[in-house]
C-alpha cells in the first residue's frame, strides 16, 4: 500500500519534472534550439517548420485512419478511393516536397553566406585545424597571424569567416548555437561563415567520429561586443605574461617546449596547442576540464586518463612539487 502511494507520488513528481528536463535540454550553450547566431536561427526556423509540418500531417493521417477504421462503417465509392489516392498519394506529397525543396534551396545562401561581398568585409578571419583531439585556432589579423587553441573569440554582429582543414582524419566543426556543421577534411580546405547575434559563451564539438577521444574534442566560442573583441584579440596577440622563472625553466627542461609554443620564450614547438595564453582560457584539454590548478596537475600527470589516445605523454614521473610548479606556471600564462 505504502509502496503504491510512493510509486504514485514518484510518477506525479516525474510528470512534473520531465517537461522541465526536456525544456532545459533545449537551452544552454550547446543547443541548436537556442540560437545565438544568424545561421543557427535559420537552422532552428527550418527545424520548427519541419517539426510542426510533420506533426500536422501525422495528426491528419491518424485522424483519417481512426475515421476510416472506427467511425465510418460504410465502404466508400471506388471513385472516391481513386480521388483519395490521386490527391493524398500523389498531388499533395509532390506539392509539399516541391515547397520544401524550394524553401531549402532558398535558405542555402543564408546557411552558407560566403558571398563575395561578405568575404571582402569580414569582422574576423581565421583558420581552424581539427587535430586528434583538439582545435588549432589561428586568427588572421591585418597585423599578422596569431595562434591559439580550443577557444575562438568572435565579435557580435560581424561575420566570422573560418577556413577549416585537418592534418589527420576527418573532423567536423559544430557550434550548434551559432551555425550548422562543416567538415574538416585532410587535403581540402572548407569554409564556414557565421555571425553571432548575442554575446555569450558557446560550446562547440567535433561532430564527426575521429577516434577514442572524439567525444572529448570540444571548444569554446566567446562572442563579445566588437570593442571588447578588439581588446581581447590584442591581448591574445601579445607575448606570454610570464617569460622567466622556475616554471618556464621546468617547462623547457622537461621537454614540454618540443611540442608547445609559448610566445616570448624559447618554447616554440608546434605539435600541440599553443600555450601562450592558456591561463586565460576557460577550459583545459579542448573544453574537457575546468582550467584550475587541480585539473592542470591531473592533466600533466595522466593526460591519457583524461583523454584516451592523446599524443601527449604522461608526466607522472615528475615529483609532485615540479608538477605543482608547472601547473601554476601554466595558470599564470594569462
Amino acid at each position: 500500500m505504502g509502496s503504491s502511494i510512493g510509486k504514485r507520488r514518484l510518477a506525479r513528481r516525474a510528470a512534473a519534472v520531465f517537461p522541465a528536463v526536456l525544456a532545459t535540454g533545449c537551452t544552454g550553450p550547446q543547443s541548436a534550439l537556442d540560437p545565438a547566431g544568424r545561421e543557427a536561427e535559420t537552422v532552428a526556423h527550418l527545424f520548427w517548420v519541419m517539426t510542426i509540418g510533420g506533426a500536422v500531417i501525422w495528426v491528419a493521417v491518424l485522424a483519417l485512419a481512426v475515421y476510416a477504421g472506427g467511425l465510418k462503417r460504410q465502404p466508400v465509392s471506388e471513385a472516391f478511393a481513386f480521388r483519395l489516392i490521386v490527391w493524398c498519394g500523389a498531388a499533395i506529397p509532390t506539392v509539399i516536397l516541391a515547397a520544401l525543396l524550394v524553401y531549402g534551396l532558398y535558405l542555402m545562401p543564408e546557411l552558407r553566406p560566403w558571398t563575395r561581398e561578405a568575404a571582402a568585409e569580414p569582422g574576423l578571419k581565421g583558420h581552424v585545424t581539427g587535430e586528434q583531439f583538439w582545435w588549432r585556432v589561428r586568427y588572421d589579423l591585418p597585423e599578422g597571424a596569431v595562434e591559439s587553441a580550443n577557444e575562438i573569440l568572435v565579435p557580435v554582429g560581424r561575420p566570422v569567416h573560418l577556413t577549416l582543414t585537418s592534418p589527420d582524419v576527418i573532423h567536423s566543426f559544430w557550434v550548434p548555437a551559432l551555425a550548422g556543421k562543416m567538415d574538416l577534411i585532410p587535403g581540402r580546405t572548407n569554409r564556414i561563415t557565421f555571425t553571432a547575434t548575442k554575446p555569450g559563451v558557446y560550446r562547440g564539438v567535433c561532430a564527426e567520429f575521429c577516434g577514442e577521444s572524439h567525444a572529448l574534442m570540444a571548444l569554446t566560442v566567446r562572442a563579445v561586443e566588437p570593442e571588447e573583441h578588439a581588446r581581447l584579440i590584442a591581448a591574445e596577440a601579445r607575448p606570454a605574461a610570464v617569460t622567466a622563472g622556475a616554471g618556464l625553466d621546468l617547462f623547457i627542461a622537461k621537454g614540454c617546449a618540443a611540442c608547445h609554443t609559448i610566445r616570448g620564450t624559447p618554447a616554440a614547438g608546434t605539435v600541440g596547442p599553443d600555450l601562450t595564453h592558456v591561463g586565460s582560457r576557460p577550459t583545459l584539454a579542448a573544453a574537457t576540464l575546468p582550467n584550475d590548478q587541480a585539473a592542470r596537475e591531473r592533466f600533466l600527470r595522466h593526460p591519457d586518463a583524461v583523454k584516451p589516445g592523446i599524443r601527449m605523454p604522461a608526466y607522472d614521473m615528475l615529483p609532485p612539487a615540479e608538477i605543482e610548479t608547472l601547473a601554476r606556471f601554466l595558470g599564470d600564462l594569462t
Binding site: 500523389a90 516541391a98 525543396l101 524550394v102 534551396l105 542555402m108 545562401p109 560566403w114 558571398t115 569554409r191
Partner: peptide, 23 residues
C-alpha cells in the same frame, strides 16, 4: 511521364538558386 516531369524539375531547381560553386 508525370513522375519524370516532377523529377526533372527537382533535379534542375538547384541551378536556379545556387549562385556559387564554393559550397
Amino acid at each position: 511521364a508525370g513522375l519524370s516531369a516532377v523529377s526533372v524539375i527537382f533535379v534542375g531547381l538547384p541551378a536556379l538558386f545556387i549562385a556559387e560553386c564554393t559550397w
